[in-house]
Computed example of a mutant assay.
Amino acid sequence: MFKKLIIQTDERGLLFRKGSYEKLLQPGTYRFSPFSEDTVAVLNITKPFVVQGKDLQLFLHDEKLVQELDVIQVLDHEYVLHYEDGKFAALLSAGRYAFWNVLKKHAYIRVDTRNPELPAEVDTAVLPKLTGYYQVLEVANYESGVLFYNNVMQQELKPGKYYFWKGPVTVSVKTVDLRQQQMDLTGQEMMTEDKVTLRLNFVYQYKIMNPLRALEIKSFEDQMYIQLQLILREYIGTLKLDDLLKMKQEIASFVLSRLNEKSQDYGVHFISAGVKDIILPGDIKDILNTVLLAEKKAQANIITRREETASTRSLLNTAKLMDENQTLYRLKELEFLEKICEKIGTISLTGGGNLLEQLNSLLGGEKHG
């Protein structure tokens, strides 16, 4: 009795004779003798062409079979994105693959991982299905990025998110902060022209204008720090201590001007600068405090003498007016009398004499109640 085999429309059969592939069987009914050594592998054509235990190369000599297959060869440095009927199906790494082209329409995007950037035709919507095959590098909106392949600079990157294949090329991005930044120089010991050693706190603000230039400089911030030290030492060494204490603003202007002479070398623009503190040695501080105290005392003495002179001059002017004007003299008498009345209850005047003289004598005496 014959063995019957039915191959459905969405299937194909692979006939093997004595273990070797013979030919492709189309959909239909087939009968085989019970004594036959023929075997048939039935494959679903909606799935990839895979025969367990057999290499794909064994079947590629069959032209009829090959016509119904898409055969894809992926090299070691490649990835192939496989789409079925417009939908992403899988990422194919190095190897050989075959897909039935009968019921489904296949499309492929071949990428060379030696050029790591994901091509524009790869929709980022499929990236969650590619985990492990790519990396994401970001440049913030206040930064500029510089792209490196195997530590070789490629290009400058604007703010954004960038995707790169993981492969034979090492990809890295170095970022440069473009916001206004500040550098502080604190507690720097310097010597003035008159050999006074002091400590200086200085600050300046800057912005990086040429990120590529900034990245070319090793230890960028350290070099700018040393440059500031040298400029300050050069300038402070030309000033005496008294001049230095009076010229804080001039120091800042000079340093800012000298720094901007170097702006092209560092790829930055220096915005502002200023002296925060000048810290003097204890003995110098005591001397300056003594000098300041003496100056203030001298100023106070001058003011006191000036006030005394003005008071004496005022009394002299009043006396002259009283000598020349009897009415004013009588008013002065009444003023004295008013003062006396504020202090005592009754007044007894005896004898003759000038009223003003008697009242004057009463002001120095005891109260009478």
Rank of each mutant, 00 (worst) to 15 (best):
E261S: 02
H106P: 04
Y235R: 09
G364Q: 11
R12N: 09
K166T: 01
L356S: 12
D76P: 09
L244Y: 04
K246G: 04
K276Q: 08
V80K: 03
V111M: 04
Q205R: 00
S311D: 11
A294M: 12
F2V: 05
I231R: 05
N141F: 14
Y329L: 08
P211V: 06
V102Y: 08
V66A: 09
Q181V: 06
N360F: 12
T113W: 13
L256N: 01
E193T: 06
A89E: 03
F164H: 03
D177C: 15
G345K: 03
N289Y: 14
A252Y: 02
E357H: 13
I251S: 13
P27K: 04
F32D: 00
V146M: 14
K285F: 02
V291D: 01
K4N: 09
V40L: 10
V126M: 11
L147R: 07
Q188G: 12
G187I: 10
M191F: 14
V255I: 08
L5K: 03
L43D: 08
E121R: 14
I45Q: 15
S253A: 15
F336A: 08
Q229H: 07
I340W: 12
E333L: 04
L315W: 13
S93C: 14
V136Y: 11
V268P: 10
Q155V: 08
N115Q: 04
K47F: 11
F270I: 01
P119L: 15
D70L: 10
L355H: 12
I303P: 09
G95P: 08
L178W: 15
I287H: 02
H269E: 01
R31M: 02
F49E: 03
K47M: 07
F254L: 13
L14I: 00
L244G: 04
T39E: 06
I303S: 06
Q299S: 10
T113D: 01
S361P: 05
K285A: 03
E338F: 12
C341R: 09
R258S: 03
T124M: 10
I251T: 12
L15A: 11
L288R: 00
K64L: 13
L363F: 12
M153H: 10
S272F: 05
Q205N: 05
N354A: 15
V203H: 06
K262Q: 05
I226R: 01
T197Y: 07
V111T: 00
V171D: 03
V111S: 03
L147P: 10
E63H: 12
Y142S: 04
L292A: 11
H77N: 00
T39D: 02
L60W: 06
G352F: 14
G352H: 15
G364N: 10
L363H: 07
